[in-house]
Design a protein around this nucleic acid. Sequence first.
DNA 1: TCTGACCTGCGA
DNA 2: TCGCAGGTCAGA
Length: 268
Amino acid sequence: MPELPEVETIRLQLLPVAQGREIETVRVHNLVQLQNCSVREFRKALQGRRIKDISRRGKYLIFHCAPAFAVFHLGMSGIFLRSRRDSRFPQHIHVDIKLKGDGHLYFQDARKFGKIWLFDQPPQLPQLGIDPISDRLTAADFQHMLQGSQTNIKLFLMDQSRIAGIGNIYASEMLHRAKISPLRRAGELNPVEVKTLHRALKKILSSAIENFGTTYSAYRTVNGSTGRNQNFLKVYQREALPCLTCGESIRKVIQGSRSTFYCPRCQQ
DNA sequence: TCTGACCTGCGA
DNA sequence: TCGCAGGTCAGA
């Protein structure tokens, strides 16, 4: 589920309620999601620690509780919910972080694809490529990355080892904005198309963050409300509906076992 | 490089 | 009841 804009929205909303707060207790309800430690180790490492910062790397959320660092990947349906007091316990809560004083942070994940790691130093996530919203991804870098690639451009954008954070919704949306067919090979784009796609990539992601992410089904912000970006999607889940730019019928194809939506007239 | 499996909920 | 869903990864 959550791609970069959803994870960044969650991070931005968690910061004001969690940063500087001490963790009183940690309860883990689903052992499967802990990847590299036991429940006991996870609880011991975090209880009594202060949340100094929450950062993001691609789709990973990192709680800085030095000397412990807890890393969450939200999978397809993971979200963080905030509760001010011991209110009714929501369904599918796998981790319950009680903050000292008042309030809980719940990690909820109905489909259980989320994963959690514990590190005793700032985690290195070496398999991850460059963050697409950072200034480090310039148009020139992007051009260099695409050069000679035989992978089709949609799958290239979603390859986390190249660019970390883009998923199925936004890959379709940024290709539509750039008027580039998802079926083309990445290395075949000309310099003008690469620049256009670079601009589209930044714009689509920053707009989605401003809109608090896309709620297609499970995703909610930390406050429990839906995102707003679903109201601005141009192609995703719009198969057979008219393209909002030219009126042509939106087409759906399967690429890498995932649905891709595009306009065959706008996107050549 | 591609496919299917992981798990659960929802809509047709 | 069945197919599909925003991600990732092992295995072919």
